[in-house]
């Protein structure tokens, strides 16, 4: 089976400082991968590079997504091809309603697939249905996107957008940060409801607690720009107990 995502020897820098130093990762359809690691290990950089943030320069390696070289696509093309990034810090957009934003985004993707825009009524009922997944009140639709939303509301809004765009691969960048336990449960159940045999999820997180709710098939530890250890969900539990220091020492010895 061809992997959905195949990252090979990925190097990326920001302002001449190399952050990713040779990432190799394959993600198959139906899988959930967790990427863990201490602060500054390159987790969010990996998410940003996958989504196409232009602050980063990819200096080496390749990323095949559904057989296409991701690095040759613009951020919007990546989205239309089915990649979704849930932001660690969703941006507040005064004056653009959540409904308008989501509608524009969904119709761009539909256009890309040669589909007609959704009828307003069908669209509204779809939005309401998907909002229910993350227990978001429909009144959020008319509010300016993320403006004045609490941390939890912003993250739920990210998962709502994910549900609307129905991506092939979702990358959740520290979606658990700033969430209380109830919001964490709501967000996780939203993500779980969207899991299917034909899509995949990469969960980037610092802590194990999100993985109690979104159970990964694989756990990878990122340290100093490389994946230094991979395992199943028990690795996350081990990290929770032992911290990251033993891995840092191990990888230092290997290097």
């Amino acid at each position: 089976m061809t992997p959905l995502l195949q990252i090979t020897n990925l190097h990326a820098s920001i302002e001449d400082r190399e952050i990713l130093k040779g990432i190799d990762l394959s993600v198959n359809a139906g899988e959930v991968h967790a990427i863990m690691g201490p602060n500054g290990s390159g987790k969010s950089t990996l998410a940003s590079v996958l989504a196409g943030r232009e602050d980063y320069t990819v200096t080496e390696g390749s990323v095949l997504f559904n057989g296409k070289e991701l690095m040759e696509l613009s951020p919007e093309e990546r989205s239309r091809e089915g990649l979704f990034l849930a932001f660690q810090y969703p941006v507040e957009i005064p004056g653009v309603s959540t409904a308008n934003f989501v509608k524009t985004a969904v119709n761009e993707s539909r256009k890309h697939r040669g589909q007609e825009p959704l009828e307003p009524a069908a669209f509204l009922s779809l939005m309401r249905e998907r909002m229910a997944l993350v227990e978001m009140d429909p009144s959020f639709l008319q509010r300016s996107l993320n403006e004045g939303f609490s941390g939890g509301e912003k993250k739920r809004n990210e998962i709502f957008q994910m549900a609307m765009l129905d991506p092939v691969l979702a990358v959740l960048d520290e979606t658990d940060s700033g969430l209380d336990i109830d919001a964490l449960r709501i967000v996780a159940s939203g993500v779980n409801a969207l899991r299917r045999a034909d899509n995949a999820t990469i969960v980037i997180t610092h802590y194990q607690r999100l993985l109690d709710h979104i159970v990964p098939d694989f756990v990878h530890v990122l340290w100093n720009g490389r994946i230094v250890k991979s395992g199943d969900k028990s690795l996350a539990l081990e990290l929770e107990q032992r911290g990251y220091d033993w891995l840092k020492q191990e990888s230092a010895v290997e290097a």
Binding site: A51, G52, R53, E54, S74, P75, E76, R78, S79, R80, F84, L85, F87, P90, V91, I93, F101, T104, A105, E108, S109, H112, Q161, L165
Partner: peptide
């Protein structure tokens, strides 16, 4: 970038 990451061109 937020818009673009949702498929909306620049």
């Amino acid at each position: 970038f937020y818009f673009r990451s949702r498929g909306i061109d620049e």
